[in-house]
Structures are given as C-alpha cells and as structure tokens.
C-alpha cells in the first residue's frame, strides 16, 4: 500500500527575479505526528533544496518559524498536519512584512520598533554588584510575567490589521514588551519609556481588534497591555492639562 500524502501549497518568491509571489505545490508524506515545519524540512531535504524559510528550535521557543498557515499566523513547529487533514495546506510568509525570499520576511522594521521601546531594565543609578541582586516578591513577578513570555515571533504583527494598513504603528509585541518593563519593580525607566508608548503611533493607533492576543502562541495578551497603557496615558494627559506645572 502506498503511503498517504498531503499537499502543501508553498509561496515561492525571489524579489528581483520573480515578478510576483506564486504558489508551488508539493506532496509530502502525511504523518499524524508531523507539523508543517517537518513537511517544509522534508521538501527542502528531498524535493527542492532552494526552498527558503526560517526555523531553529522546532519547539515553540525561538519564535523564528512563524508563517501564514491557511491564512492564519502560526508557529509552523506547532501547526500539526493532522489539524489540516486532508489538505491542501497553504503556507505563506507572515502577512504585513516585506518578503526577502520565499517564506522569509524582513525583520528590520520590528527590530527597530523593539529597540525604540527600550525593552530592558533602566536604572537611574546601577546598584554595585557587591550589594547583590535586585530582589522581587512573587507578587511583583506576577504583575509582568505573562508579558515576559513574548518570543518575538511577530505573529501578532501579521494578525494586526492596523499594522497592515499603516506600518508606522509600533505594534502589539513591542508595546507589550515596553509595558512589561514598565511593570517591573526593578525598573526606573517609566518616564523614558511611557512617552514612547503613548505617542501618536504608539498605543493610540490601536483600534481594539484584539487579534494579536488571539494568535499569540505564548498566551501573552498584547491587547491588554495596549489598553492598560491607554488608561495610564489618558490619565497622564488629563493631569498635564489640569495641572500644567505637574506634567512631565
């Protein structure tokens, strides 16, 4: 008996060579324990070594194998073939990003935004190493922990229609990570970070679609980070209007 197969329609594109992206059909063995990434690896190993895509850990930690699977942003290492049986399965590069080649997208815009929100602990004065660690209670950890689970996979950007319409928007993951450090008891960078999060292209561009939180593979709720930052930003704005001398 011949082995059961499943069809993948994979986007191929070489900017500069191809006029536009096109779908190429591949047939791969159907195995219940295979994920879409396994199927792509099978194609690259056995059928077409020129297929380009990013991956590393294949266990939902590195955040590099994000692609559109049947139009939905997914980590391909967590998208089982059995959930798409009998197929075909459409595999495309993450939406809303420029394509470098095939399924590889450009990270430049996201990297710039990530740096802009300063997602690291900012101290006014750094404590000398001899004085030991910055201690934190479990309750202080709980405040920001879910936002620290972000793996920068950018699925939320691919799901965000606001980012798709106008990429000046800082976007879900970067705002969630900025917010994560604002909530950290060890951090003293709120006054530096908050104005960046609450500028016009920051939280205010968000139109509460909420798809970012739906597609997040790590259970982060960027939509909540954005809405809570709006509350803080609105309070500060009204305070600065009422008490002009008390503004930042």
């Amino acid at each position: 008996m011949s082995e059961e197969t499943i069809t993948l329609e994979v986007t191929r594109y070489r900017p500069g060579h191809d006029r536009e992206p096109r779908a190429q059909t591949f047939s791969v063995p159907y195995r219940k324990d295979w994920v879409v990434l396994d199927a792509l690896n099978h194609i690259k190993d056995r059928t077409d070594g020129t297929l380009s895509y990013r991956w590393s850990c294949r266990m939902g930690v590195c955040g590099s194998c994000g692609m559109m699977v049947n139009g939905v942003p997914k980590l391909t290492c967590a998208a089982f073939l059995r959930d798409y049986h009998p197929g075909p399965i459409r595999v495309e590069p993450l939406a809303n990003f420029p394509v470098v080649r095939d399924l590889v997208i450009s990270l430049d815009d996201f990297m710039e935004k990530l740096r802009r929100v300063k997602p690291w602990i900012i101290r006014e004065v750094e404590k000398p190493v001899a004085e030991g660690e910055y201690l934190q209670t479990p309750a202080q950890l709980d405040l920001y922990k879910q936002f620290s689970m972000c793996i920068n996979c950018m699925l939320c950007y691919a799901a965000c229609p606001v980012y798709g319409l106008d990429p000046v928007f800082i976007g879900p993951a970067a705002i969630a990570l900025g917010y994560r450090y604002n909530l950290d008891s060890r951090d003293e960078g709120y006054r530096i970070r908050q104005p960046i999060l609450t500028e016009a292209v920051g939280v205010w561009d968000c139109t509460f679609v909420g798809e970012c939180s739906v597609v997040c593979p790590k259970g982060v709720d960027p939509a909540a980070a954005i809405q809570r930052s709006k509350v803080a930003g609105a309070k500060e704005w009204f305070m600065s209007m009422l008490l002009p001398w008390g503004g930042r």
Binding site: R116, P195, I196, T198, E199, A200, V201, W204, K230, V231, G233, A234, E236, W237, F238
Partner: peptide, 17 residues
C-alpha cells in the same frame, strides 16, 4: 521618529467613560 503632541488621549478618555 516624531513624538508629536496628540489629542488622542482626550478622545480616548471620552470614548472610555
């Protein structure tokens, strides 16, 4: 990147209440 002053917090505040 511009950090232009925005009236969004005002409208969002009214939206919120």
């Amino acid at each position: 990147m511009s950090t232009r002053k925005t009236s969004e917090p005002f409208w969002w505040g009214l939206f919120s209440v």
